[in-house]
Nucleic acid binder design. Structure first.
Lengths: 344, 344
DNA sequence: CTGAAAGCGCTTACAG
DNA sequence: CTGAAAGCGCTTACAG
């Protein structure tokens, strides 16, 4: 038999004060005298009073809790984003409830339904791969911030990186070290970020008077390591083999690097390779891979920051806002054509 | 101005029924007639009634919410565990609120304090590195399940793998392929799981009449890739170099592999390498690394399962229970001494 | 099968 | 500076 928890009322009885006074004293309300606050807090500690925040949330209609919808938690990018969200939210006294959509629209719909009843104060979401309309988000009565996979042609707050410009930067880096036949391993272009990386690659070529060759572009479904291997092998069979490969993520960059290495091509001398995301593996594999820092952790922080600002906005004009984080190109050995030392 | 949400009472007025009847109808209570349930649910849908689960939680003193304390979300092992927890909890209609201790005891203490007020129904925790006593967990009025880093000499529910036996298995695998001078890259032995891996390594040597050589054991603080490189370089300087290395995680296994490869040793011919955890990198790096599957995802599922069972246990005898998951040795190229094909 | 009533533990507008 | 009172939206033991 658990013993009943001490309540405000118990404290009030004990101290011959009104529950309202206790409540204000605990909340450090300015109207309460310092003397009263002192004895209340002392007694609270003595009796082991723990405020029931569910009661408080219920009464105030505010849970200080954020709902997060991610495709999968165990994808490194998303775990970094979540980490950034938690970090920021924790400091702002919010907590973070996490759901995985598993890239299923049905599941996303159900999660949104759950979040409506749970009365979170706001939601951060990365759309599932299957999501093609946003009606379910429209119904929500709390602010929503999207990150990474964000709705298109839809008024909403978003946090993203500049994929298009980043892809230009990456491709032009290959051009700058002398690559002439630059290949691209692309993600599914139905996903806007991968489309943007593809378009950036093309734009960079065009801008630098290089032709866009369709056999130098390979598409994958989900940019997996295994798919990357297949793409790289196809490049290997071409008459005009690429001398540089821009991959839409680091896994496929590792694939490309290993496939060409195994076929006795030197990296970066014969083929330079560049990835995207700055996954841990990119700086462990030999040679270390040049990549684009995708700012995952900062993305989480920015999303939490934006969301909490919108929640706490006094005036009801919740305006949508899009934050674009600037990426950095992290240059490592896989694109250092002129340098031949062992320490990149 | 947001419009007020529809409540049970609104439905009751609308239908000329008592709120209690509505409540029971929505909850599919057996005492309510099918006819009534039908009109209630129809009206609920029509008016867009969304139950306020905060009110319900408050009334029932049950939140169907689990608190999770992990050192860091962005460590792959923990993100897998969380994924397993979320997966199981979601199916059981619980949701999952996550906190990062950042391996700080102070932060862990504060999180436990927050979780007390938040009235989660149960807690899953991996202890911070700094945690050396468990008083703060004792105070909790809800069931707690620990995983991975669990309290010692303390009655509690735990989910762990058999680190000691796994280390024996790994070391004996090296012995079985003919290794005679087996080295170990160890984690901090203050952490029980790393101590167990070290002890398993020693036990396997002793059992097989091999000497324990102290210069073949290198200790790290946190088993980082960089530390692993240093350890491996020290092994490289020894007169009697190791012909097999058992590393307490996969990052240091990658270090060992790369350091020896760079020094022109062949893996596994000259040195066999075995890791621990089955991180994604272990099956990408060349040669692919033999490792111990640490069952992270299943650990999360088992922890959630155990916790929810304890929460829903009718009788109050909440007995502590320890679940030990069996690991598997995943044999890959880095220890295949006799096989010399390219496809492991 | 349905209803009336009490109450979960807080907070807050109002009054003094 | 403190108090009395109402009420947030549900659920449940009790009654019929």
């Amino acid at each position: 038999m658990k013993k009943r928890r001490i309540t405000l009322k118990d404290l009030a009885n004990e101290l011959n004060l009104a529950p309202s006074t206790i409540s204000r004293a605990i909340a450090n309300h300015p109207a309460i005298s310092e003397a009263t606050k002192k004895i209340v807090n002392q007694k609270a500690k003595e009796l082991g009073f723990i405020p029931n925040s569910i009661a408080s949330s219920f009464r105030k209609k505010k849970t200080t809790s954020l709902g997060i919808i991610v495709p999968r938690i165990d994808i490194h990018f998303h775990s970094l984003v979540i980490s950034g969200i938690e970090e920021f939210a924790y400091k702002a006294s919010y907590n973070v409830t996490i759901f995985q959509s598993k890239d299923s629209l049905d599941r996303e719909l159900e999660i949104v339904r759950i979040l409506q009843t749970k009365m979170v104060d706001g939601i951060i979401a990365c759309l599932s791969l299957e999501t093609d309309n946003y009606e379910h988000f429209k119904k929500l009565e709390v602010p929503v911030v999207f990150y990474d996979r964000v709705p298109e042609n839809y008024e909403a707050s978003k946090v993203v990186i500049n994929d298009f410009e980043s892809a230009i930067k990456a491709t032009e880096h290959l051009i700058s070290i002398g690559c002439k036949r630059i290949a691209h391993i692309a993600g599914n272009p139905a996903t806007s970020i991968f489309k943007a990386r593809l378009e950036g690659y093309k734009a960079a070529l065009t801008k630098n008077n290089l032709p866009i060759k369709h056999n130098l572009i390979e598409y994958t479904k989900e940019l997996s390591y295994e798919e990357g291997v297949k793409c790289a092998k196809r490049f290997l069979k071409l008459q005009g083999k690429p001398d540089g490969i821009f991959c839409a993520n680091d896994y496929t960059a590792v694939s490309a690097l290993q496939v060409f290495k195994k076929a006795n091509y030197e990296i970066p001398k014969d083929v330079a390779v560049i990835g995207f995301s700055n996954y841990p593996i990119s700086k462990i594999i030999e040679p270390k891979i040049t990549t684009v820092n995708d700012r995952a952790f900062e993305m989480g922080q920015a999303a939490a920051n934006l969301l909490i600002r919108q929640i706490e906005e006094k005036n009801e004009i919740i305006s949508s806002e899009t934050i674009v984080l600037e990426t950095q190109l992290i240059i490592r050995k896989s694109t250092k054509k002129n340098i031949h030392t062992n320490t990149p």
